[in-house]
Nucleic acid binder design. Structure first.
Lengths: 329, 329
DNA sequence: TCAAAAGTGTTATCCTTACACCCATGT
DNA sequence: ACATGGGTGTAAGGATAACACTTTTGA
């Protein structure tokens, strides 16, 4: 098995189609946005996606190249998310089924360029996931979602199964003594998908036992599994801002503390304590003062900050969950 | 661009070969091991890798199926790592170059089964990365590595470049006021690769400016980019054990605190404080006491523990790096 | 009796959270 | 004057890291 011939691999690939898809994120003001591709006839949006071209040395270079040429967006930070290849991604080719593989990427851009191609739009990502925005209190949709989840738990066969379901619901949606976790975007979406609360379930292959009546209609749809890819991206980004200074990839060259806080809040879908936020950012040494102050805003003008580019990599990545290792020797 | 025809995608895939490769990990006693495929003629090992078959519904199912049939290992926890597809992975096909894509997976198994196929071996992963094991003090190789890194820093063109290089070296290898971070396995490997301190650089495409004389020869090689895949796996696992109870996927049904601690230490390549480790594990409620005690060991017999399967998902994932969100509303 | 490992307890320190309060500006 | 946002101080509580020390077994 060690020496698989290239022929085998190539033969296998004959039934394959691979593309790259990108969740392109920016923050305008206090809203997180993604670049969506509008389809003419279909109601559902799509993510930007393009072919895997072999002339680029790396996958990432290929992605950058076509996204930049197609959308006239200059990509900043880019990170591979996941490779999606489930069977329900198959499409029917000329005369046989073809497995679609899609390598998902997260890309951050600094500003929302005017939409110059007619079919691309910047959309607030909470349009697709209304239950993920807690900034103005608990989202209304969650009442209905929770009701459905409870009945799913109640429908379990045995007591063990019921416990497991209850546990999972509590963890995903922060019920009982567990808190809502902003990072569980994908787990939440997958739970909804699995139990048929989301239209995609019924579009893909509806299991007999779940009815389409209970579907949550709030939240815009996307084609194929693009909403799953988006959920993956949001989850990754929400996690990442907590231990790597990636927010700054979304900020203009100078910004105030409030700007920064609102950007983080937009991504996390949660509000933060003002003073604690400042202190944390300041203590990390991530920003430095430009001499200037902001103008034109409502209240007192604020100092304008700038990201300290020199601290690109360091950040001791604090907060490990294991006891500190023994020092030295 | 939104509506790419399937034809395009399929056409693009003609020049593609996709396979799955797996880093299969277990811990025996106090050593982390991976399943390596020995090659007959070549000196370098390979990771387990197999074709992407279309009969399975998910990629993961396909991986499990062929790994289990080929290696007679029953895989426990499985997680997708990354999709590797750089140009230097190209291979020459019948009469043209073919891009090799490889979807890397991390798989954890509970025990090292006797090696029943002649060409598979369990190997200590520190054979490939001797600089990653700090359990008995600072690894000896690091002296040489650090010397080379310093001279790379000194060789920088301008002052800015020099600072950036110094910064990067400090962050990756924990020099100056920055501590060694067990999780930066991949970043370290990539730095070594980039500046030609590792044989792979010269095998792939040696840049003129770096000489092969300085190469670090300690550490076993692997074919193609498999050592990079392994580095990715180790990094991911080291990170994951800190916030998800994945170590237990590597433990036998019952174990002592010491067993558990040694497993974690094996993975992290660092030693922990005994009492603090216990307290942390206990406080998380991850384990429960079986009535029994361990027998036959050197000192005083220890209580045998068991993983509490009921807490699969919860774990509030503490230690977020952002200020706590405002409560409720 | 000694070595080896299992356990228990305690302290200083730092980080996080949660408040309370004052400052500067435009309308 | 007051609303809006900028900015400082601080005290309580919790988690960590680092010690010191006792207990139980096998050889």
């Amino acid at each position: 098995m060690s020496v698989r011939t290239q022929q085998q691999a190539i033969a296998a690939s004959r039934e394959l189609a691979v593309d790259l898809s990108a969740v392109i994120v920016c923050v305008t003001g206090d809203q997180p946005q993604i670049l969506a591709i509008r389809s003419e006839n279909d109601a559902a949006d799509a993510l930007a996606s393009g072919p895997l071209e072999s002339r680029h040395r790396t996958l990432e270079a290929g992605l950058r190249s076509w996204v930049e040429s197609q959308t006239h967006q200059c990509l900043g930070y880019v990170e591979q998310l996941y490779t999606f290849g489930d069977r329900n991604r198959m499409v029917v080719g000329s005369n046989r089924r073809v497995r679609m593989l899609s390598i998902g990427y997260l890309a951050l851009v600094r500003e929302a360029r005017p939409e110059n191609t007619s079919n691309t739009v910047w959309r607030n990502w909470y349009q697709y996931f209304p239950w993920e925005d807690w900034r103005s209190g608990k989202p209304a949709v969650l009442a209905r979602i929770e009701r459905q989840l409870r009945s799913w738990v109640a429908d379990a066969e045995g007591a063990g199964d019921r416990r497991a379901r209850a546990e999972r619901v509590r963890a995903c949606f922060g019920l009982g003594n567990i808190r809502w976790s902003d990072e569980r975007v994908l787990e939440r979406y997958e739970l909804l998908y699995e139990i048929g609360l989301v239209p995609e379930t019924h579009r893909d292959r509806a299991p007999a036992w779940c009815s389409a009546d209970d579907v949550i209609k709030e939240g815009a749809l996307m084609i194929a599994d693009h909403r799953r890819v988006l959920a993956t991206a949001i989850a990754r980004l929400r996690g990442k801002i907590k231990y790597r200074p990636v927010v700054f990839e979304l900020m203009p060259p100078t910004f105030t503390f409030l700007n920064l806080q609102q950007a983080v809040e937009a991504l996390a879908g949660l509000l933060m304590h003002k003073s604690n936020f400042r202190r944390l950012v300041e203590s990390q040494g991530l920003v430095e003062d430009t001499g200037e102050v902001s103008a034109g805003a409502a209240g007192r003008p604020a100092r304008l900050l700038r990201y300290r580019h020199d601290i690109l990599l360091e950040r001791p990545v604090p907060g490990a969950r294991l006891p500190q290792a023994l020092r030295g020797k």
